[in-house]
Design a protein around this nucleic acid. Structure first.
Lengths: 128, 128
DNA sequence: TGGGCATATACGCGCAAGGGCATATATGGG
DNA sequence: CCCATATATGCCCTTGCGCGTATATGCCCA
């Protein structure tokens, strides 16, 4: 295994967690609130909270008999950082993407003749 | 389960797929290239490409014996859209977050850094 | 101190996802 | 026509994950 996939990357892969995050984004909540909002079993919520906690996505604060969970944004910022270069692709540089596509000799359009084989030595990224 | 989790949300949950996406972000590739770059078995790459394809994250174009895969940004834009409201939390409206925190009975989470504090060595959560 | 609320954990299960290996399919070439 | 290249699939196994139920823990209150 090269890299075990940063946890924040797979935290949003579950609908329940996704929902919990959305709820916590608005404001901190304790478990009971989350259970009500989601209408799912309490152990289930607790378990997902545990996952999120270990992923650093939420922080908990003991408050008497309640446990107040709040969102932690740092890991999501991490996700966002990964997403950033992709965002540029549709943020206004879409033309750049299309240039890339067009730059390929492969019949981009239909009747294009095959030009030089692109199978040269590893063509790395074409400086953005 | 209310919503089966939009596929783009769980596409990045696998390291191999993550890597493939990163490679395709730079430029389209055919399967062979991806196999070399990743140093994983070819069937494995093909299978992940299938997942990505069905998630709409990549598009393929038959080119003789090659298959040219290219990134499709729309689903990722979807992910980005979900992430957007979170992004505001650290983009300058961090004060808003802190307002929420402050609204709690007792919570003073060291509100010194007003700017985006990208990566503090966030340790684990309050130990049990 | 006992009881009840709020939350966490343990155990067991079924399913789906990932991986490897072998093989099928398509295409181009001798 | 047969073979080599390039990619996709099928089969099987293993593991991880999410779920539910039952139970443990911590804390307040009477």
């Amino acid at each position: 295994m090269p890299a075990p996939t940063p946890l924040p990357f797979q935290a949003p892969s579950d609908p329940t967690r996704l929902r919990i995050l959305d709820l916590l984004r608005v404001r901190p909540r304790n478990v009971g609130e989350l259970v009500e909002e989601r209408a799912v079993s309490q152990p289930r919520v607790s378990k997902h909270l545990r996952v999120l906690r270990e992923a650093g996505l939420v922080a908990v604060r003991s408050d008497a008999r309640h446990r107040r969970y709040r969102l932690r944004v740092e890991p999501l910022a991490d996700l966002d950082a990964w997403l950033a270069p992709y965002r540029e692709l549709w943020n206004g540089r879409l033309d750049a993407l299309e240039r890339h596509l067009a730059s390929l000799p492969r019949d981009s359009g239909g009747s294009g003749g095959s030009a030089s084989t692109p199978t040269g030595p590893h063509t790395e990224e074409p400086a953005p």
